[in-house]
Design a protein around this nucleic acid. Structure first.
Lengths: 139, 139
DNA sequence: GCGTTATATGCACTACTAAGCATACAGTAA
DNA sequence: TTACTGTATGCTTAGTAGTGCATATAACGC
């Protein structure tokens, strides 16, 4: 069990909001809030259509503030929201409301297609590159 | 009336959280949430015990994301939360809950002393330097 | 006009942060 | 072992954000 935060308690809220202050990290949180289960990195790569290193990197930031934790299973790493986080329950409804429109809607749609490729609870396909979604507009 | 945000709508939530991701700005918001009325810069200087330029500067950031707006009255400028902000009503309860403990509690106490020096709704004393509060611990 | 007070801001400096690329690490399968 | 795949991370670079100081702006009183 992880115990230490690396910040003075007095600045915890600032660190928390700083972690939320990035588009990529909000897109990741949008996926996790939507999926309501752990999601592995390759699934996020396909859903967000971003390079794998960007997602790993931003996940590390979210883990540092303990919004996200990880569970390893073989080569795959499943990341999920930490329901124990001291502010998540209050923050989640606000995030759900704010993370609407593009790119958040399309990200959720791509994640759904990607998650439908699972074998039960397990990710089995690795990087699929380009989950096709009716792209009425690009971006 | 200010109309334009300077950010693409798709990144508005990220810009909003970025604005919340700073200790000084959270301390300012804490004051405004507590006061439930407009507060002028010199009152914030005394409550937060920070240099005036820091407060003006961070207020400018909060105004850029339109969480805060200002009303001028002579030399004094009264800053307040913008109740029209698209996310403030959802965010305010979360902020109230997170902005507890030090330095937020003491900031609110100092603001109360400072506000008690008002003449009705008007700030009349300028910089008082060191609103005395039982400082059981320094900082 | 002048001086004074309240607030905002230009500048220099420092520190941090995200992106991009390559590579390291870990686990699987042969 | 070797090859391969999923994930994490070291490094560099570019852009950005906070601080501190000085100064500018604005409104007041004389």
């Amino acid at each position: 069990m992880r115990t230490g935060t690396h910040h003075s308690p007095a600045e915890l809220p600032a660190e928390l909001f700083k972690a939320l202050g990035d588009q990529t990290r909000l897109r990741i949180l949008n996926l996790l809030l939507h999926a309501r289960k752990r999601v592995c990195v390759c699934e996020m790569v396909d859903a967000l259509q971003l390079p794998q290193y960007q997602i790993s990197r931003q996940l590390a930031v979210l883990k540092r503030v303990e919004l996200v934790d990880a569970e390893k299973s073989g080569t795959w790493v499943y990341h999920g929201l930490d329901p124990e986080h001291y502010a998540l329950s209050r923050l989640a409804p606000v995030l759900r409301e704010l993370l609407q429109g593009e790119p958040f809607d399309r990200d959720r749609a791509r994640l759904d297609r990607r998650l439908s490729m699972r074998d039960g609870e397990r990710c089995v396909v690795g990087f699929v590159d380009s989950i096709s979604i009716p792209e009425n507009a690009q971006q």
